[in-house]
């Protein structure tokens, strides 16, 4: 499997670390209700199919959001975090 790094282009999977859904980008304000924090941290839709998840390209230090399909394993593309939110 290969993923596109916004800096380095398509690279082998072994250069990346995944931390899960891109929901983790939407950090609530400190006084948001606990539900908002739990949604941010723990509650995930885990869709079978199209999804967006967070990956770290270890060699260059870039975080990215990859759009891919968890059923077919097709990778459609990626963006850096500044464009992802």
């Amino acid at each position: 499997m290969h993923l596109p790094c916004p800096c380095c282009g398509w690279r082998d999977l072994r250069e990346f670390t995944c931390i899960g859904a891109a929901d983790h980008l939407h950090r609530p304000v400190p006084d948001a209700p606990p539900e908002a924090w739990h949604d941010y941290l723990h509650n995930r839709a885990n869709p079978a199919g199209e999804g967006r998840d967070l990956w770290y390209h270890d060699p260059c230090g870039t975080w990215l959001v990859a759009s891919r399909n968890t059923l077919t394993h097709a990778v459609h593309g990626s963006t850096g975090l500044e464009d992802a939110r």
């Binding site: 380095c8 690279r11 072994r14 250069e15 270890d58 060699p59 260059c60």
Partner: peptide, 9 residues
Amino acid sequence: ARALMGHLP
């Protein structure tokens, strides 16, 4: 290019 050689940066 930045890459990994096994676990070597």
